[in-house]
């Protein structure tokens, strides 16, 4: 079934195509050394890799903040140049890792309105989008609060509402669970689920292998500025060389399941459980 879904996804339209992208912050060290990636409509992609592997640089590149001399980015088949960079920024949204370095306005409402205002929408449209994004993230009561009187989890929600209000086609989350408590992390996962149901294309960079295993349909592994694996989670996490090279760990669910199968405790029907619910079903 998973394979079928994957094939189904393969046939979906490609939104973003990245070809041989290279980027260097300074002359000495290359942060990206030739990256190729296709992002299709409705995909859930987990981006993994150790710190400094080039994930964040890659995100800033496909959002158009950083512009590379070498390499090409196509948005819906159209090659992006300096002039069309704003198309990229409109359609690819990034939720930054640190909410405090994203929030600039002094009330939640004006913060969320910043993106839509830059899209040069009419006042009423901006208001509608802000209302929608705030209710999506359960922030309507916080509308007039200043960000410095919000908790960490609330700030994170504001930073997500910021991006939702811009209606991008691809939403990128840069290590979203890094500073969240378990309750807020669960909240985030619910939001991600909701977005996926609505057919949004989501890309998440994370170090949490268990999360990537249960949530993603596709795992992209960065190592030293290059993509070393790009496949379904099971295939990536079963590949010992990739795991060792990228400093990853195997998901606990996968280990437990394989151990139980070796001992003959579960049926061996080649289907792997992704979460505890599916696991219960297997036994």
């Amino acid at each position: 079934m998973a394979v079928n879904r994957l094939i189904e996804k393969m046939e979906q339209e490609v939104i973003l195509q990245v070809r041989d992208l290279q980027y260097a912050y300074s002359d000495e060290k290359m942060a990206l050394k030739g990256v190729d990636l296709d992002i299709r409509q409705g995909e859930r992609i987990a981006v993994m890799g150790s710190n400094g592997a080039g994930k964040s640089t890659f995100f800033l590149n496909i959002n158009g903040v950083l512009q590379s001399e070498h390499g090409e980015i196509f948005y819906r088949g159209q090659k992006m140049t300096k002039k069309t960079m704003n198309d990229l920024r409109k359609n690819v949204g990034i939720v930054f890792q640190d909410a405090d370095s994203q929030i600039i306005a002094s009330t939640v409402q004006s913060e969320v309105s910043f993106g839509p205002m830059n899209l040069k929408l009419s006042r009423n449209d901006v208001r509608d989008r802000v209302d929608e994004a705030l209710s999506y993230m359960n922030l309507t009561d916080f509308r007039h609060r200043p960000p410095h009187y919000l908790s960490g989890g609330e700030k994170k929600r504001v930073s997500i509402a910021d991006i939702i209000a811009m209606h991008p086609e691809i939403i990128i989350f840069d290590e979203p669970t890094a500073a969240l408590d378990p309750v807020n992390a669960d909240m985030l996962e619910e939001v991600l689920e909701k977005m996926a149901q609505e057919g949004k294309t989501i890309m998440i960079s994370t170090h949490d292998v268990d999360f990537a295993y249960r949530w993603a349909e596709r795992v992209v592994v960065f190592c030293d500025g290059k993509i070393i694996a790009d496949d379904a989670p099971l295939a990536v996490f079963s590949n010992e060389t990739v795991i060792r090279q990228a400093n990853l760990k195997r998901p606990m669910m996968l280990d437990i399941f394989e151990t139980m199968r070796e001992k003959g405790l579960v049926k061996d029907d080649r289907s792997y459980p992704k979460n505890v619910e599916e696991f219960k079903y297997c036994i």
Partner: peptide, 24 residues
């Protein structure tokens, strides 16, 4: 350092040199 991060975050949301917010 933070200033740089801010600038990236602003640019990512189509900042074009002018800060505009919805005002009540």
């Amino acid at each position: 350092k933070k200033g740089n991060a801010y600038y990236h975050a602003l640019e990512a949301r189509c900042y074009d040199g002018e800060l505009r917010f919805l005002e009540e």
